[in-house]
């Protein structure tokens, strides 16, 4: 029987892969994609765990991914706009070249 734990482990794997990508990819758009993976992992967790806590928070877990998706859409829009403006200003999308905030 496939229970909640299986889903949670899947989501953990997906999250860690996204984390690795966000930490190590040079390309700004790749980093955005990795962040999307992490969002998806969170969503899976929400829905799966709503079965674990179905007596108290079932509908909350089922409805919350909708908010997350909306936020993710907004994030990706703004993120891409930032990457594009970085590309236009310094002709690169590599994040390790964008270190103007160095102390």
């Amino acid at each position: 029987m496939i229970g909640v734990v299986h889903y949670v482990i899947l989501s953990a794997l997906l999250f860690v892969i996204g984390l690795y990508g966000a930490m190590t990819r040079k390309n700004g758009i790749s980093v955005l994609m990795s962040v999307e993976l992490m969002f998806n992992a969170a969503n899976i967790n929400f829905v799966a765990l709503s079965y674990r806590f179905r007596d108290v928070a079932f509908l909350a877990g089922q409805a919350f991914p909708l908010f997350v998706i909306a936020i993710a859409a907004a994030e990706v829009t703004v993120g891409l706009a930032i990457v594009l403006s970085l590309y236009r200003s310094s002709n690169t999308v590599n994040l390790d070249e964008a270190n103007q905030l160095r102390g």
Binding site: L19, A22, M23, T24, V31, L95, D96, A98, N99, Q100, L101, R102, G103
Partner: peptide, 17 residues
């Protein structure tokens, strides 16, 4: 400590995690 302020976001993320 200003050496730690590299301006590279991914290094911050790495340190956090």
């Amino acid at each position: 400590l200003r050496g730690a302020q590299t301006g590279l976001v991914q290094q911050y993320l790495f340190v956090i995690f």
